[in-house]
Design a protein around this nucleic acid. Structure first.
Lengths: 260, 260
DNA sequence: CGATACGTTGACGGAAATCAACCCCGGTGG
DNA sequence: CCACCGGGGTTGATTTCCGTCAACGTATCG
C-alpha cells in the first residue's frame, strides 16, 4: 500500500486498474506516474465525447460511472459498456480517429484527460505499459462479446444477474467494493438500455432476483446476498475479464476515498 | 497490383486486409512479407481453437469463412463475428493467454498460422505495423458493438440486412466481391446464431428481404439487388468499420484466386 | 437411391414490449 | 412548512415479435 501514499488519486486508480489485469514493475509504475492528467468534474448524464467526434485525448474515470452508447435512427439507445474508476473508456480513440459511438456520465463523475501525444510517448518509452494498454482494449472487447452472448441468448433475469456479477467483480478488482456490496449508480432504464430490455421488464426481473433472496438493490447500492446462487442464475464465469495479473490473485484492498 | 505478383497468396491477402484499414509503406510491406506463415487446410465446421485453450500462435484466414462463438450452459450458441480472408480472428490471443471463446470454420478453409513469437518480433521491429494490428483489434471491438446494437435494439429484418451489408463491404475491402455480390458460405442457422434469432425466423425475415427485391441469397452466394434500400433497411452506416486507410479510399481490385 | 443437411411452412405458445396509470421520495420554492 | 414537481420505481392490461415444435420439401453426395 506504499504506492497509495505516493501517487495522486488519479494515478493511483489507474495503477490499481492496470495492475488488476497485468503485473506491473516498479519502472512501469514510474512511467505511469509521469503521465500528465488534468482532472475535471462532470454532472450526471453529460456527454463527454460524441459519435463523430475526433478526440485528441483519452479520458480516465477517476470517480463515478460512465457508459458508452449509440442511438438507433428511431432513438432507441444501446449501452455498450459501463465504466468505473480506473477505466479508460475511449482508449480506442488513440487508433480510431472518428468516434463511432458516444461516451456519457451516468453519475456525477471526476474524469482525468490524457493527451494522445502523452499516451503515444508513454507507449514508446515504456513498451510494457503499451502492451498492458493493448491488453486492456482486448478485455474491453471480451466484455462486449460476453454482453452479446447475454443479449442474444440469455433470458432477462440471467442477463441482469450476469451484469451485476460483472460489476461487483470489477469494482472489487480496483478496491471499490467489499466482498458483497458496491455502489451502483445506474437506473433501471439504463440497465435496460444496456441489456436490450425495457424498463418495465428490468423492474420485474429485478423483483424476481430480490424475491429469490439473491440481491438487494436500493438507492444506488448493490448488495449481493447469495453470491453463489447469483453466479448460477447469471451463468457467470469471470474468465472473460482476464483478471489474472495484479497482486498474485490477491483482491485489491478496499479504498474509500470516493465521495460516497 | 505489382505486389500481388511478388507476395505469396497468404501474405498478399494479409497485406490487402491491413492496407484496407491503414496506409502501409513499402518498408512495412517488407516487414509483413517476412512473416513466417504455415498454411493448413480445414474442412467445414472444425474447431481451430477452443474456449480454455492457450494458443501459442495466431491464425490468418487465407480462404474460406470462420467464426468465433461460445455456448451457453444450455447449449445455445452465440456467434460473435464472421471472419473472411485477410482476417486475424484470434490476434487477441497474443495478449489474452486463455481463450474465452472458440474459433471454428464455417466452410472449407485455408488458414495460415503465425507463431506468437514471430508476431512479437514483427511488432518490435516494425512498430507501425504493430499499431495497425492494434487498430485491427479495435475495429474488431467496434464490430462487436455494432452487433450488440443490432441484437439489442433492432428488429430481425434490420439485423439481417445489416449483417449482409457489413459482409459485402468487408469482402469488397479485400477485393473478394464486386459491387453487388459475394460468396456467403453461411447457413440460416448460423446467421441465427450470430444475430440471436431462431432459424425459422431468419428464414422468414430473409423472405421478406427477398420479397422487397433487396437481395438474392442462394447457394452460398449473396447478391444485393438494391444496395441503397438494403442500407436503409439495415440502418447501415459503415463508419464503424473504419475503412479509411488503404488506397486513398479506392476499392480494392477484385481478385479471383479463391477456390470458387 | 437413400442419407443427410439445409431450407420452408404452419400452428401454437411465451417472453418481453408497449401503453398507461400510479406511487414514492427528495428537492425546491412560495 | 408544506405544496408542488419530477425522476425513478412499480403495477396491470394488452399486444407483438419471435421461439418452439413438427412436418415437409429439396438439393447434394457417396
Amino acid at each position: 500500500m506504499i504506492e497509495a501514499t505516493e501517487l495522486r488519486p488519479e494515478h493511483n486508480i489507474l495503477f490499481r486498474k492496470l495492475r488488476s489485469i497485468a503485473p506491473l514493475s516498479e519502472d512501469e509504475r514510474e512511467c505511469l506516474a509521469s503521465l500528465p492528467l488534468s482532472s475535471k468534474s462532470f454532472p450526471a448524464d453529460q456527454d463527454i465525447v460524441r459519435e463523430g467526434d475526433r478526440p485528441s485525448e483519452c479520458c480516465l474515470v477517476v470517480e463515478g460511472f460512465v457508459c458508452r452508447y449509440k442511438l438507433t435512427p428511431a432513438g432507441k439507445r444501446q449501452i455498450f459498456s459501463f465504466h468505473l474508476p480506473g477505466d479508460l473508456p475511449d482508449l480506442q480513440s488513440l487508433y480510431l480517429k472518428v468516434m463511432d459511438h458516444s461516451l456519457t456520465t451516468l453519475s456525477p463523475s471526476k474524469l482525468a484527460f490524457i493527451p494522445h501525444d502523452s499516451l503515444r510517448q508513454l507507449i514508446h518509452r515504456c513498451p510494457r505499459v503499451g502492451d498492458v494498454l493493448w491488453r486492456d482494449t482486448l478485455i474491453d472487447a471480451a466484455v462486449f462479446r460476453e454482453w452479446m452472448m447475454g443479449i442474444g441468448r440469455r433470458s432477462a433475469e440471467t442477463r441482469i444477474a450476469h451484469v451485476l456479477c460483472e460489476i461487483l467483480i470489477r469494482m472489487r478488482a480496483v478496491g471499490l467494493a467489499n466482498e458483497h456490496a458496491c455502489e451502483l449508480p445506474v437506473t433501471q432504464a439504463e440497465l435496460g438500455d444496456a441489456l436490450g430490455l425495457s424498463t418495465v421488464h428490468v423492474n420485474r426481473s429485478l423483483q424476481e432476483l430480490r424475491g429469490k433472496g439473491l440481491i438487494t438493490l436500493k438507492g444506488n447500492r448493490l448488495t449481493v446476498q447469495d453470491w453463489d446462487e447469483l453466479k448460477v442464475e447469471g451463468e457467470f464465469d469471470p474468465t472473460y475479464l482476464h483478471l489474472t495479473g495484479g497482486r498474485n490473485g490477491q483482491p485489491e484492498p478496499v479504498i474509500r476515498w470516493m465521495g460516497t
